[in-house]
Design a protein around this nucleic acid. Structure first.
Lengths: 106, 106
DNA sequence: AGTTTATATAAATCATCATTTATATGACAA
DNA sequence: TTGTCATATAAATGATGATTTATATAAACT
């Protein structure tokens, strides 16, 4: 495996957020901080799995957390990242429009 | 290929670009259109593999292509997408800074 | 037509990583 | 201190998807 010639940071960020659950979690958190329990309720997945993905997001520096009693509150660690989630959603929508009208109709 | 080609949303866009080669290709293309051969030279990977990933990007509507003689030129299909690649890089850099100083030192 | 160049495709293998299941930790309250 | 609630971790399984290898097409020459 050779040393890549492109920006490794962008790719690392992508790898971390390009998962269904993690992106779903970030969509929730882009609207404000939440406890683990609230996230579990909202996205209706098993708690251990949610915690597992939160750990991954945290290790990547994408979210940060804070203990409040027995609860743990998670939030996206910067405004830029929060905005990026929305920008990705918007870009997805735009592709949808492009594809409806022209190129990539199956 | 199991990356969906229709009903695009943020997650599907991510799935398509969160690959080392595909993100590398997009970084190249964010600076202007290129032929397959030029991309192969630049990123130093096998041609069939590059073509394979270009096909995936095209099916997702992220790039478009045009034949010119025996060459095929690829480009990113919208300004917004091109900008998004850069925004992802920048967000990655920012995380790097955050992590250097605080949380996620490995 | 046959040859070279540029690109695409397909099948098989291999690697990665999400999920499940089970259990552990840590905080608060009775 | 014991019980319960909230969250975390770890091992095993399973699914997905990237890469390799080999071959196919298509265009522009001779």
């Amino acid at each position: 495996m050779s040393i890549p010639t492109y920006n490794m940071d962008g790719l690392r960020l992508l790898r971390c957020i390009c998962d269904e659950m993690r992106f779903g979690i970030l969509e929730q958190l882009s609207q404000g901080e939440m406890t683990v329990g609230q996230i579990v309720q909202k996205i209706k997945r098993d708690q251990p799995l949610v915690s597992h993905h939160l750990k991954t997001l945290k290790e990547c520096g994408i979210v940060s957390s804070e203990s409040r009693g027995r609860h743990v509150v998670y939030r996206i660690s910067s405004e830029r990242l929060s905005a990026l989630i929305v920008q990705i959603q918007e870009a997805g929508d735009e592709i949808n429009d492009i594809c409806d009208s022209t190129c990539c109709a199956k």
